[in-house]
Nucleic acid binder design. Structure first.
Lengths: 132, 132
DNA sequence: CAGCATCCAATTTGATACTG
DNA sequence: CAGTATCAAATTGGATGCTG
């Protein structure tokens, strides 16, 4: 039944540059997080789940499958009982993950600038302060 | 009424590292495209709409407002009739846009690798070919 | 433990109509 | 043209229950 998109609203039936699709997989909410965590080290399914926090297993599975299909993530299922599956980055995936990780890092570094901007933005339209 | 999230499912009420939120704005479907196009040059509202293609004006507006609030996009509304509004990147926005753009570029360059990976992935589970 | 399938609620998205 | 408000449709996301 072919898992396909990780992020919403692919207007079903509409065409779209294929690269935008991959970009969306990579930048998808969970895709970003998965890549970042795998950049650190390989993770088992449940490790990833815990590391990311608040991901339904459904979404994590879907994200992993999409990234695997795109050749960014490697899935290593050991035929043991109980099952053990390790996920890691492929060479391609590492390249993507590094960029995504850099972007995430940048975001964290700039957070205070962003918050200042927000404060200014919000204040500018809530003419509710300066009484009298 | 406070415009806030550009990408779905912020489980309403649940807390989340603030930086992840900004990251999501930046990597959101339309956020990515807006940043990339503005990196090229400032655009008017409708120019952006056409440049991106298939964006409802509602989504574009929302995305722009979110990015503006985060201090990434600058909105310059000229008080003329008919209205003319130019959107451009702020210094902060340019930094973000450059990284996003790099990621997009990378994606395009690697598309064939991705497609090969997909082909392999798909073939591996559609034991429907090799008849005999 | 991993992960698939289904049902269902919560959200997002896009069309449309309307204002300045 | 730019932007807002509203409404219906389409998707996501998550909870469950069930395999191996």
């Amino acid at each position: 039944m072919a898992v396909s998109n990780v992020r919403p609203s692919a207007p079903a039936g509409e065409e779209m540059c294929p690269y935008r699709l991959v970009l969306e997989h990579v930048t998808s909410r969970w895709g970003v997080l998965v890549l970042i965590h795998l950049l650190d080290r390989p993770h088992r399914f449940s490790e990833l789940r815990r590391a990311i926090g608040r991901v339904s297993e459904k979404m994590l599975t879907q994200t992993l499958q999409t990234l695997e299909r795109d050749g960014l993530v490697h899935r290593d299922a050991k035929p043991v009982i109980p099952p053990r599956v390790d996920y890691s980055l492929t060479g391609l995936g590492r390249e993507a993950a590094e960029q995504v990780s850099a972007l995430a890092g940048w975001t964290q570094e700039r957070m205070d600038q962003v918050e200042r901007a927000r404060a200014a933005y919000d204040e500018a339209r809530e003419p509710d302060s300066r009484a009298s």
